[in-house]
Amino acid sequence: MLKKTVFAGFGGQGVLMMGYLYAVAAMREGKEVTYLPSYGAEMRGGTANCTIAVSDEEIFSPVASSPDHAVILNNPSLIKFESALTRGGLIVLNSSLVDRKTSRDDITVYRVPANELAKKHFNDDRSVNIIMLGGFIAATKMTSIESIVKALHEIFKGKKSDIMAINEKSLTLGAELVIKGA
């Protein structure tokens, strides 16, 4: 089953890393994967996003004109991607920064107060992306949480163990505290 997910937020929120972790985890589970970052002429600022397609079969287009899932870290990204989401699609919002209401009734919305959680547990915003990823995985079951943990270890090979511990804790927090409903 082909599922395309858009991860979107401000540049600097770790959006591309979030998508990359997910793509590596899906690949390690034996799935077909494509990862397509947005690229523009500007170097900084604006929104960053990437599209990850995961399927049991060959993936043809890596582009998602109507994605199945969206992981949204800020208001501009919600405006940009909400209308594109496919009918019956699923959206995971960072409710700490997204205060806009979703305007569609044919999609499922999940919320994670990612910045608040990060502040409370680590006194640091840096794990927002991993918390959101935990929420996304719990909401969609696209891969197992264990596969994401393995991907974390693969990608951050050689990083300090306390950073790994924060990453793993972030994943769990996101997975446990994701709330269904707008």
């Binding site: 990359y20 690949m27 994967v33 494509t34 990862y35 397509l36 970052p37 890596p62």
Partner: peptide, 10 residues
């Protein structure tokens, strides 16, 4: 093209 160059695949 830019898509082939930017896209990641296994």
């Amino acid at each position: 093209d830019g898509m082939m160059g930017q896209m990641m695949e296994p």
